[in-house]
Design a protein around this nucleic acid. Structure first.
Lengths: 197, 197
DNA sequence: TCGGAAGTTGAACTCCGGTTCCGTTTCTGG
DNA sequence: CCAGAAACGGAACCGGAGTTCAACTTCCGA
């Protein structure tokens, strides 16, 4: 059962496929270095391609950014899947995943800004986002069941927290690791808290 | 002892003072409604003034935004001062202040974006920021001395956390109150934690 | 090999928003 | 009340960045 491919599915010519890849690669680099205000022309140049080509593959800048975000989300989901499969201590699994993904995000200025800033970009990666939320949710539920995460915490709380973390990452004068530390502490259910509050 | 007024201090004509006030008021409203991408022309119109007048008072857009931020910071500092003077439970005082200021920020889209986004704006409000940090720091130290805040927490951790919270506020689909709840939990030192970990 | 569809190119277009500039108006001190 | 300094107004300027498009090139199936 191959992925459901509706009629509108052209194979894409060989050079086109190559270029698309080059463009994404270049976009990742350029946006990563100059932030999201880097120009389309810059991306095109870095990819060794004309601007027109970029626009043939991505109808507008936002779509390009969206694809980058979608790819990151896919990575995050893969990591989550892995953490879930690995088993082990429920809290450690969750915490480790968050740290690992944060570390990836920290290097990717493009995605940082997209997530911390413009709302429009989220939409472009909606399916990946939902998938991530699903797998992450499973991890969270497991830790919650083990009493290692505050009972009122949900997977739906994560996006906002990550959005905040991204905003911090985007500002070099801040120490995002401290931020993350505090957030993790806030998510966690503390030992000796048998009586709730 | 009036404020130290170095030679370069003209009294400012009556109408000019009035207009300056009107502009700031308008900027607060306009940026609050349309976000920071609102145009200078919009601000001018809302203030019932020509663009040129806006530029006479603020050399560039960023300076205008900076003033708004500075004013907010001043409010925050005043609130902090008040909380410090009021005494009472150290944690409650700190928590209450943070909540109160957050509630103010939540209404002020202009400042949200400035703090959550562009780094440039922070500079414009540097003195107010430092002052806020000082008073807030006192409040934090007090709560820390009472063992109500994690020992490793510092006033310097606050800006990043607030930056993150602002980013969340700026995105309507997020529930910033949840975010704040978790951050506060992360800052707090939990009761029964006499043995540390 | 060859026709034509798919893909590429990059100069030019367009829009947009910050900023300038100078003629006009308003204030204020004498 | 007047002179001139200060402030105002807003059309025009300007550069920057996303996007288009028509001529040109490359690929691929027959």
């Amino acid at each position: 059962m191959p992925a459901p491919s509706p009629p509108t599915e052209r194979p894409l010519r060989a050079d086109a496929r190559r270029n698309r890849e080059r463009i994404l690669q270049a976009a990742r680099t350029v946006f990563g270095e100059q932030g999201p205000e880097a120009q389309m022309d810059d991306v095109a140049r870095a990819a060794g391609v004309g601007v027109g080509t970029v626009y043939r593959h991505f109808p507008h800048k936002q779509a390009l950014m969206g694809e980058l975000v979608a790819q990151r989300f896919a990575t995050f989901r893969a990591n989550a899947e892995e953490a879930l499969a690995a088993g082990g201590d429920p809290w450690e699994a969750f915490e480790g995943l968050v740290r690992r993904n944060a570390e990836i995000m920290a290097v990717d200025a493009a995605v940082q800004h997209a997530i911390g800033g413009e709302p429009g970009v989220w939409e472009a990666a909606e399916p990946e986002r939902l998938e991530l939320l699903r797998v992450g949710g499973a991890l969270i539920e497991r830790a919650k069941a083990a009493g290692r995460i505050r009972a009122d915490f949900t997977a739906d709380d994560m996006p906002a927290l990550m959005c905040g973390l991204c905003a911090t990452m985007a500002q070099p004068s801040f120490d995002w690791r401290r931020h993350l530390e505090i957030v993790l502490a806030g998510i966690r259910a503390w030992p000796t808290t048998s009586s709730g509050r």
